[in-house]
Design a protein around this nucleic acid. Structure first.
Length: 499
RNA sequence: GCGGCGUUCGUCUAGUCUGGUUAGGACACCAGCCUUCCAAGCUGGGGAUCCCGGGUUCAAAUCCCGGACGCCGCACCA
């Protein structure tokens, strides 16, 4: 089948394996669902995507950014509510091995399971009511915890968990972080790192992973005094929204909402959420994800995480997986800090001088999935032309190399000169390639999205000029070697956030 | 986890139904020649535990059983 007729997803997954963007991990042992290895190319694109996120969500707001441990002791996830909320009690049939959620199964046969019922209590209910497997009618083995967090042991015998979100590593350090920001609110603290979720049955290839990278900000504020930004430029922005109300009426598209109107109508539970939505809009633009291809969907009460009072997902439209969550925006109120106060006994409240009150700060959390954004970026940059040419039209500042340097001919004098130019450009990440023909080298570079190519040709030897080729148009211009650094720096500069 | 379908060089695949040569091809890759700008050509080369384990058979990529992984539905997705 010609590439032009194939699904983008298939072309992209094939390209990803072939050229070192990403592939399933542990293939020599048969592979493990939901685990992915990023190759040389994928690693660099993801790292640049993370750096761009930091520029937008950390540096531009003067937030802190920290790195906390991946492993947490059990009390952290007792306080956060994950140990009870992120766990299901399950029953497994002794004969056919079907697994059921205990509370769902028992309530289906008319038995009410109290919140937080122990495993022993569930076993008693099953035995007393003679509940059998609905598949084959056999007995169940003892009820067990179906834990969506990966459990581990710290030292000998101390239970711990791999974090399912980076947030708790910020909440637990809040007292110190607050001091570091001169004991003042509002305060934003960001973190980028791996998180772990033991999904029952991950599907959707690179989209649903058991281990992935979260980029998130915990934004602490006093709901009484820090009511959110009100500058004109921000209020005049529009954002694509699908409201809970629309969804209940069966509407599934998006509507463009002016921030000022939504704020005046009190649509958002606080004014920081729309601020982060507008910032996200400008971030997605910098990733090359076009308007109309993403929306902010308000989650229905039944879909919300246990900690969230209001929750929006940012969803990007993908060819194979439809509207796909790439970011979440949660109003976590004082749920987490209060939880840690209760369990640890530490006071997490702060004193607000203007109101003369002690408050536990409230939190708004924008949280992004890096691998999903990477995938969306790749899918939207993948171009498949009629003649079979495949290239990634990645924004220059996110590409895996800054520039290629090629000799026009694979002859010693051309190669030596090309190496000299490559080393002159050592402030950039250079892809040097002298194998095959020049056309082949351009094609290879285009395929992984390298935006510019410098070619040493015959004229170079007489006047120290080279050709500079542009990936998307294949056009070339002649430029002196001496002016390359300045010109490349200009072409590779990153855009700035809208707000 | 359940049901259906699938898994063969780096990639895509032929072969499997109907067991029987050194598992064939295309593209990619490497070396050399050629080459004054877009995957050209010529010559040569390296590449496959046929997903894994077990069984049937004189003989298994091929048939049977179990498992892993993938896709599609169901369930699950704080």
């Amino acid at each position: 089948m010609p590439a032009t007729k194939q699904k983008k997803t298939d072309v992209l997954i094939e390209l990803a394996k072939r050229r070192g963007i990403f592939w399933p991990s542990y293939e020599i042992y048969g592979g493990v669902k939901g685990l992915l290895t990023l190759g040389n190319v994928g690693f660099e694109i993801k790292r640049r995507l993370e750096n761009l996120w930091i520029k937008y969500f950390v540096y531009s707001r003067n937030f802190q950014i920290i790195e906390s441990p991946v492993i947490g002791p059990r009390p952290v996830y007792v306080a956060s509510g994950h140990e009870t909320q992120f766990t299901d009690k399950a029953l497994k049939c002794e004969k056919c091995c079907s697994v059921f959620r205990a509370d769902h199964l028992l309530s289906e046969v008319g038995i009410n399971v109290p919140e937080g019922a122990s495993l022993e209590h569930i076993d008693e209910l099953v035995a007393h009511n003679k509940v059998k497997c609905p598949n084959c009618g056999e007995n169940f083995s003892k009820a067990f915890q179906w834990l969506l967090m990966f459990k581990t042991e710290i030292g000998v015998g101390d239970p711990g968990y791999l974090r399912p979100e980076t947030a708790q590593g910020i909440f637990t350090e809040f007292k110190r972080l607050y001091v570091h920001s001169r004991s003042s609110l509002p305060l934003g603290v960001a973190q980028i790192g791996k998180v772990f979720r033991n999904e029952v049955s991950p599907r959707q290839g690179p989209i649903r992973l058991r281990e992935f990278t979260i980029m998130e900000v915990e934004f602490f504020f006093d709901p009484e005094t820090n009511t959110g930004p009100l500058d004109e430029k921000y209020l005049e922005e529009t954002i694509p929204v699908l409201t809970a109300e629309d969804q209940e009426k069966g509407f599934s598209g998006l509507r463009s909402v002016k921030v000022r109107d939504a704020v005046e109508k009190g649509f958002f539970s606080n004014n920081w959420i729309p601020f982060f939505l507008v910032l996200t809009k400008s971030f997605l633009k910098a990733l090359g994800i076009p308007d109309g291809s993403y929306r902010f969907r308000e989650k229905l009460p039944s879909e919300r995480a246990h900690y969230a009072k209001q929750l929006f997902d940012c969803e990007v439209l993908l060819e194979s997986w439809g509207w796909t969550e790439v970011a979440g925006f949660a109003y976590r109120t004082d749920y987490d800090l209060s939880g840690h106060m209760r369990v640890s006994g530490e006071d997490m409240s702060v004193f607000i001088s203007s109101t003369n009150k002690k408050v536990v700060p409230h939190v708004v959390e924008p949280s992004f999935g890096a691998e999903r954004l990477l995938y969306a970026l790749l899918e939207y940059s993948l171009k498949i032309e009629e003649d079979g040419r495949i290239y990634l039209s990645i924004p220059s500042y996110l590409s895996p190399f800054d520039v290629s340097v090629f000799p026009l001919l694979s002859k010693p004098d051309f190669i030596a000169k090309a190496k000299e130019v490559a080393s002159y450009l050592s402030d950039f990440k250079v892809n040097f390639d002298d194998s095959g023909s020049i056309g082949r080298r351009y094609a290879r570079a285009d395929e992984i999205g390298i935006p510019f190519a410098v070619t040493i040709d015959h004229q170079t030897f007489s006047d120290d000029t080279v050709t500079l080729r542009f990936r998307d148009t294949k056009e070339q211009k002649r430029i002196s070697i001496a002016s390359l650094p300045t010109e490349l720096a200009r072409l590779l500069s990153t855009p700035k956030p809208l707000v």
